[in-house]
């Protein structure tokens, strides 16, 4: 089988204020269904060992994450090679219930934005209140980055993980790079 290739082949942009890195292939499974229903909750638990996260939150355990996307959708994030097995388990557990699980790993691109001004870099591009008191680690936000839809969360302080469509990966990488230009820090979130 051919090797998976991520959208930008791990492109990296390094500046004093933030570092932007395309994360290689990441496994992603979209699961749609009634998130309050037993079969869906059970399927997440048996297949990924994850419970359904709170509204607008991302829950991580043992290297796997689950993110709340909308009232009837979650995104399971795992290692790229684990997707097929996990999808099999999910579909098995969901048999007979009205839900859909799909492998979307190759439809997306994933970036890490890290550094002392990571919050600022994101705040310049997304219409989201990223004040440290408003947006904290564990929260998940679907929004736009400049002109394209994207989603992000903070695995830890000073670090954002950004997901966008693969077709706009270059655009997102470029605008993140512009927002992280040397000397462009504003200092608005400095405590």
């Amino acid at each position: 089988m051919s090797d998976p290739v991520s959208a930008l082949k791990n492109a990296t942009y390094v500046a004093d204020i933030a570092e932007i890195k395309e994360v290689g292939p990441v496994g992603m499974i979209t699961l749609r269904g009634d998130l309050a229903s037993k079969p869906v909750q059970k399927a997440c638990m048996t297949a990924a060992g994850l419970k359904i996260p709170q509204q607008r939150h991302c829950f991580t355990q043992d290297g796997n994450s689950i993110a709340w996307m909308s009232p009837d959708e979650v995104l399971i994030i795992c290692a790229y090679d684990d997707v097929a097995a996990m999808l099999g388990k999910l579909n098995n557990a969901l048999k007979g219930s009205h839900a859909l699980a799909a492998n979307v790993s190759d439809a997306r691109a994933v970036f890490d934005v890290s550094g002392p001004s990571a919050r600022e870099v994101m705040a310049k591009l997304a219409p989201v209140d990223l004040d440290p008191s408003q947006f904290t680690a564990g929260m998940f936000r679907r929004t736009r980055i400049a002109q394209v839809p994207a989603a992000f969360w903070m695995p830890q302080e000073d670090m954002f993980r950004v997901i966008c469509f693969r077709s706009v990966a270059q655009y997102v990488f470029d605008v993140l790079g512009v927002a992280a230009q040397p000397g462009s820090e504003v200092g608005v979130f400095r405590r």
């Binding site: 509204q55 607008r56 909308s70 009232p71 219409p127 989201v128 936000r141 679907r142 929004t143 736009r144």
Partner: peptide, 12 residues
């Protein structure tokens, strides 16, 4: 009302 987010109109 679906996800509880308050944002400015360009997200909608």
């Amino acid at each position: 009302p679906n996800c509880g987010i308050t944002a400015e109109e360009t997200e909608f």
